[in-house]
């Protein structure tokens, strides 16, 4: 039981960075950024490769830089070259498959079984006993979250939020939407890559398919978090991503343990939940309209 709790919290913390990234792109900037899947693997691949050469910390930063570069490509495609935003993400994501293979040395699976990772280095400090990896993962995620909240209160951060909130206003004010969108997508993908980097060092391997569907999982976490914490300020939104991510991993563990849903079906269930959650406002207004219609028809019969 302790093991389940521990792994759940660990995974929740590590993957929370992805939902944080989606909070930035999907909620704040109002862009569905499909670079996410590829950026996650990119971060993982770069981190594992750099760690293999003996620099685990450098691995994290290199991964973030690589993720930011991927985000930058998507941003240029959509702001400068007029590619529709969803398509821009898909195009980058497709290209990233090759880049990721390259980053892993042209194999689909890379391991770092004997090398030092940030986790082994932290364990050697002796802090937290058996909970060391949870503590380290939490530190990274909390630090990223605090920095994100801080950033969104700065001049650029506020401009970025206005870009997603009221494009009309931005066009008439001294904000260049090309810049804000680019900065936003760079940061979002750097966060996603950081998540991949931490997961890669934690499981001591990188796999070319590790990112499949991660964007949907991240959105599921985001929505679960928002349902629990309600939407509100930026700080609340960022906390919600962490809460949502942990809850999602608990549900995942529960399904895995009890086998209520066959584990092979989990992605389908996740996709269903995300689709339903995003469609909810529309469904709700449709139901209330049908109700009103039925009500008024009944009234006329009297």
């Amino acid at each position: 039981m302790r093991f389940i709790l521990q792994t759940t919290l660990e995974l929740g913390m590590m993957y929370a960075l992805v939902s944080m990234a989606l909070f930035l792109s999907f909620r704040v900037l109002d862009i569905a950024d499909l670079t996410t899947d590829g950026a996650f693997v990119l971060g993982m691949a770069v981190s594992v490769t750099v760690t293999a050469s003996g620099h685990p910390f450098l691995g994290l930063f290199a991964a973030m830089l690589a993720g930011a570069a991927a985000g930058c490509v998507t941003a240029i495609l959509q702001t400068k070259l007029g590619v529709p935003s969803i398509l821009a993400g898909i195009v980058t994501n497709t290209g990233l498959y090759t880049v990721n293979l390259m980053a892993m040395g042209w194999t689909s699976n890379a391991n770092i079984l004997k090398q030092r990772t940030i986790f082994t280095l932290f364990k050697a400090l002796g802090i937290g006993g058996r909970w060391y990896s949870l503590i380290l993962a939490s530190c990274i995620t909390v630090l990223a979250g605090v920095l994100l909240v801080w950033f969104l209160g700065t001049r650029i951060g506020l401009s970025l939020r206005a870009t997603g909130d009221n494009p009309d206003m931005v066009r008439a004010s001294s904000i260049n939407p090309t810049h804000t969108i680019t900065i936003g997508l760079c940061i979002a993908n750097a966060l996603t890559a950081l998540s991949g980097a931490v997961v890669g060092q934690s499981q001591r391997s990188a796999d070319i398919n590790a990112g499949t569907g991660i964007v949907v999982v991240g959105l599921a976490c985001l929505i679960i978090g928002e349902t629990i914490c309600r939407r509100g300020s930026i700080r609340r939104g960022v906390i919600a991503t962490v809460v949502g991510s942990i809850v999602y991993r608990f549900i995942y563990a529960l399904v895995l343990k009890t086998k209520i849903v066959p584990i092979e079906c989990l992605k389908l269930v996740t996709a269903f939940i995300v689709g339903l959650a995003i469609a909810m406002p529309t469904i709700r207004s449709w139901i209330s309209f049908q109700r009103r219609k039925a009500h008024s028809a009944a009234g006329r019969d009297l």
């Binding site: 700065t154 506020l158 909130d165 206003m169 004010s173 001294s174």
Partner: peptide, 17 residues
């Protein structure tokens, strides 16, 4: 104005930019 940002945030943005 940006509807989902607070009054203070809107003013901050106008001031900083």
């Amino acid at each position: 104005t940006a509807p989902h940002m607070t009054i203070e945030e809107n003013l901050s943005l106008a001031y900083l930019r």
